[in-house]
Measured scan of single mutants.
Amino acid sequence: NITNLCPFDEVFNATRFASVYAWNRKRISNCVADYSVLYNFAPFFAFKCYGVSPTKLNDLCFTNVYADSFVIRGNEVSQIAPGQTGNIADYNYKLPDDFTGCVIAWNSNKLDSKVGGNYNYLYRLFRKSNLKPFERDISTEIYQAGNKPCNGVAGFNCYFPLRSYGFRPTYGVGHQPYRVVVLSFELLHAPATVCGPKKST
C-alpha cells in the first residue's frame, strides 16, 4: 500500500531547467500520482495528452512514469508532439509516433530571460542525422557541412553544433522561453508502482 505522493513538484518547480539538447529525465516510481494538482495549476500554456485522457489519469496505474524537462522557445512547443519535424524534434528531443503521455508547457519569461540576454539555454542546430525517439545527444563535436574534414576547428563550413537562445524579456511570445515537462507513461508486464489516488488503496 503506497502512500507517499509522487515528487512532481520537484520537477515542475525546479529552480533551473535543462537546455533542450541535454534534456533532463527523472524516473518516478513507487508513489501516488495526483495529476489533478498539475491539471489545476493555472499558468499552463499547453497540457496535451496522447493515448490517454488527462482527466482519467487519476484512475490509472503505470509501471513507471518518466518526467523529461527542458526549455525551448514558445514557437517550438508545437514540435513536442508525435510525428513532428523541425530543429527541436529532429536534433534535440524526439517523441515516438506511438507516444503515451502528456506534454505540459508554460511561459517562463520572468524566470529564464535576462536584460542583455540569458545565454545559458542551448539547443542543437546541426546534426548529421535525426534523433531516434528519446535519444539524447550531448556531443559538442564540430559539425562538418562541406567535404573538408574540420579536425575539431570551427570555421568555413565547420560549425559548433550548439546555439544559444539568448532570451531577453522584451522578445515577442514566440521567442520567449517556455518550460516543458513531458510525462511518459510506461506500461510493462510488471507490477504497477505509480497509481492515481483512487487506485492506491
Results as ranks from 00 to 15, higher is better:
K199Y: 14
F47C: 06
V37M: 14
Y39Q: 15
N64Q: 11
V65G: 06
Y121C: 06
F8L: 12
R163D: 11
N58A: 11
P149Q: 13
L60K: 11
K128W: 07
Y165N: 05
P191R: 13
K56H: 11
H175M: 14
G101E: 00
T55C: 08
R124F: 03
E76Y: 00
Y171W: 12
L60H: 08
F17Y: 05
T85Y: 06
A42R: 12
P43L: 05
Y21C: 02
N157V: 05
C150H: 06
P7C: 09
D97V: 09
P191G: 14
N40K: 15
G51N: 14
G74S: 06
S113G: 10
C158A: 06
S129G: 11
Q176E: 06
C102P: 00
E135I: 03
Q176S: 05
D34L: 08
G101N: 00
V71A: 04
A105Y: 08
P177D: 04
A22C: 08
Y35G: 07
F12V: 05
A22G: 07
G172K: 14
P133D: 06
Q176R: 03
V103C: 04
I138C: 12
L111W: 13
A67S: 02
N147A: 13
N157A: 11
F156Y: 14
T85S: 13
Q79V: 00
N4F: 07
E76N: 05
D137A: 03
S36N: 14
A22I: 04
Q144L: 06
Y66D: 05
S113K: 03
P191C: 07
E10Q: 11
T201M: 14
K132W: 06
S200G: 14
R27N: 13
C102L: 02
C195L: 10
F47A: 07
S164M: 07
Y35K: 06
T201R: 14
V173T: 14
H189R: 13
A190F: 09
E141I: 07
G166P: 06
G101T: 00
N130L: 11
Q79I: 01
P43G: 07
D137G: 01
H189N: 15
T193S: 12
Y66P: 02
L95A: 01
N107I: 04
F126I: 11
R179I: 03
N147R: 12
Y119P: 15
E186D: 12
A18Y: 06
Y39V: 09
F99K: 00
K114R: 13
A46M: 15
V37Y: 15
P82F: 00
N107W: 03
E186N: 14
F185H: 00
V173H: 11
V20P: 08
N24H: 11
Y119Q: 14
N30T: 03
V115R: 13
S108Q: 03
D68S: 02
V115D: 15
K48Q: 09
L60D: 05
N118E: 12
D137T: 02
R127C: 05
S139N: 11
E76F: 00
F134C: 07
N107L: 03
P197F: 15
K128I: 07
I104C: 05
F185C: 05
D68A: 01
Q144D: 10
K26Y: 06
R136I: 05
L38K: 03
I104Y: 10
A89W: 01
R168V: 11
V52P: 04
L125G: 15
Q84E: 09
L122C: 12
A105E: 02
K110V: 09
E135R: 04
L60Q: 10
